[in-house]
Each structure stands twice: as C-alpha cells, then as structure tokens.
C-alpha cells in the first residue's frame, strides 16, 4: 500500500510538472504574438507539453532510484521532473542557454542528465532499444538497477518498440516499457492506426506480462509499476505497462487541434489525475492547507527554475563546433606504433 508520504511526493511531482508546462506555454507564446512564428520568442522550435500525463511519470518514477535509467520520448518534461532531473539546468536547456543540460545543443526533445539516468529522443520509439541496453548493462554487471522506456500509444506500431520487447524478453532484461495512452498521435486517433484497444496486449506475443491501467490515476499506476519494477529488480524480466493519460493541450504548441472534437477535449480535461490525487490525500488525512502548501512550494520551484534559465547567458556561437566527439578525432592516440611487419614482398 502506498504511504501518505509517497502520496505527497507524487503529488509534488505532479503539480510541479503541471505548473511547469503551463508556465512554459506562456513563455513559449511570448514573442509569438500577434502572428505565431515557430522560430520566434524566448523558446523557439517545437514544444510538446505533457499536461495531463503527470500520473504516469509520478506513479512509475516513485519506484526508481538515481542509478535506474529512464528514456522518454518527444514529450519528456513530466518524466524528467519525476526522475529528479536538475530542473534549473533542464529549463536553461529549453531556453537554449549555455548552462543548459546540453549547453543549448539539444533543446526540449533532447535532454540528457546522466547523473540521474535520464535521456529523451524525438524519434518515435527510439528510446526503447537504449533502455533495453541499460537493462543489459545492469544484468551483465549483476546490479539490481532497472530501466524504464516511456513511449506514446502511437509508438507501439514501431519496429524499434516491438524488436525491443522481444530482445528484452528473450534476455530476461530488467526493463519496464511504459506506454502513455493519451488517445491521440498528433491528429490520428488510436483506432485509426491499431486494431488493438489495449496496447499491453502486445506483451502476449513476447511471452511477457502486460498490464493496462485504464484510468488517469496515480495510485493505480503506482501499484502496477510497483509490481513491474519489483519484478525487474528481482531479475524476473521485463513488463509492458500501458497507462491511460490525457492530452490537455495540443500535440505541440501551435497545434490548432481542428481534427479533435470539442467533447473529446472536455472529457479529457475532466479525467484530471491531480484532482483525483488531492482527494486521495484528503482521505489519508492531509488537510487542504497542507496540500496548498505543497502546491505553492512546487510552483515556487518552477518559477525559480524559469527565472534562473532566463538569467543565463546564450551560448557563444563558436561552441557550435565543439562536442561532436569526446576524444580527439585521432582517437586515444595520435601516433601509430612502428612494428616491423614480417611477410609480404617489400
């Protein structure tokens, strides 16, 4: 059973993530008025916000340690926050600043914080193989760390995911695949791209457990993840989880969502997992005032991170040429030994 303290921790992760996305949305749109120009403003480029996905991040990452590895897709912030990624440096990265996690080279879809085992990628399902690789390393080194790969329900038709399921299953790797089902892959509803309503059924074909949590509920996700991650840690192999979340915003900022029925948007918003968790907290005896305090602290942390980021210098243009390799181009040496190679004609 989840403890009150854990409920509090999950709540903090979730309200931090929600406020973070709402504030990034504001910052992003600043400078894109009156006409929306994706390359203008303090945060340029595509921005995929995860408002409505928080429960899946909090419920799963609650069971993870710093030495566990997480890979996330193009919609990564909530997972990064729950995994404990440095919020200030992550925000500086999103603002393209020199002190960002990737010195401004990666941006919001390409956040790397090796200190807490977090990475994300903008190519659909391509975080799955590296997560399997982290599981493979744990197995070879005989540690009890685990890996979690996050992906969207639109990604479960991709080869990299299906191949990774098989790879993890056949090698009994400590990996948990978490599919966040928000009903949409940009404009494509789930039913248009797969005949399977429950994505966790994919697990059956690989002889691995598959579970689906079919409502936006952090505690239910916590319970399911506890079992899956426990199984991985105990070296009993991988699990596929699908969790229902919802998309409160467009696919990316600027998405007109003209393909989306209004009722769908409204229904999604009503499934709010944060309100649900607040009720859970209250039923565990946490009063409204304490909840508000948790929320205020979380908001303050977000504001601090954004203020920090905006205060950071932009990278020097010359830095664009650095960091392609970590070793010099010649490799670990710049001289070749002089052997007298016998044989041959000359």
């Amino acid at each position: 059973m989840v403890s009150v303290n854990e409920l509090r921790e999950m709540y903090v992760d979730m309200v931090t993530a929600r406020h973070y996305e709402e504030r990034l949305q504001e910052e992003y749109l600043e400078g894109k008025q009156p006409a929306f120009d994706i390359s203008a403003g303090p945060i340029p480029g595509e921005l995929h916000l995860a408002a409505g996905h928080e429960a899946s991040a909090a419920g799963v990452c609650q069971h993870l340690r710093d030495d566990d590895t997480v890979t996330a897709p193009h919609r990564p912030h909530h997972v990064a926050i729950a995994k404990g990624v440095d919020l200030e440096r992550m925000t500086a990265e999103i603002f393209g600043r020199e002190t960002g996690l990737g010195k401004g080279k990666g941006g919001h879809m390409h956040l790397f914080d090796p200190d807490v085992g977090f990475a994300c990628s903008g190519i659909i399902a391509e975080g799955c193989p590296p997560a399997a690789g982290a599981g493979l390393a744990a197995k070879k080194r005989n540690t009890d760390s685990v890996a979690v790969a996050y992906l969207g329900e639109g990604a479960i038709d991709q080869g990299a995911f299906l191949e990774s399921l098989n790879f993890a299953a056949v090698h009994d790797l400590p990996v948990v695949f978490v599919v966040e089902d928000n009903d949409w892959a940009i404009s494509m509803p789930k039913g248009r791209v797969t005949d399977v309503e429950n994505g966790a059924q994919r697990a059956g074909g690989f002889d691995m457990p598959g579970v689906r949590v079919d409502h936006d509920d952090a505690v239910a996700i916590y319970d399911a993840a506890k079992e899956a991650i426990g199984r991985a840690r105990d070296r009993n192999g991988p699990t596929l989880m699908e969790v229902q979340v919802h998309r409160r915003m467009g696919h990316f900022m600027g998405d007109p969502e003209s393909y989306r029925p209004e009722e769908d948007q409204e229904a999604a918003a009503e499934r709010d997992s944060i309100a649900r968790l607040e009720a859970d907290l209250q039923s565990h005896g946490v009063d409204e005032e304490s909840i508000e305090e948790l929320r205020d602290d979380a908001h303050e942390r977000v504001e601090d991170a954004i203020a920090f980021a905006k205060d950071q210098p932009e990278p020097d243009p010359s830095a664009a040429h650095e960091d392609v390799f970590v070793n010099p181009p010649s490799g670990v040496t710049d001289t070749e030994p002089e052997y007298d190679l016998a044989g041959g004609d000359d």
Binding site: S39, P44, G45, G96, R97, G100, G102, G104, K105, G106, G107, H110, E314, P315, D316, P317, S318, A319, A320, H321
Partner: peptide, 9 residues
C-alpha cells in the same frame, strides 16, 4: 544545434 545563436552559426 538547437539554440538560436548556435543554429545560426
């Protein structure tokens, strides 16, 4: 690279 001055470079 992502950041504006870097991509412009």
């Amino acid at each position: 690279p992502y950041s504006r001055p870097l991509e412009n470079e």
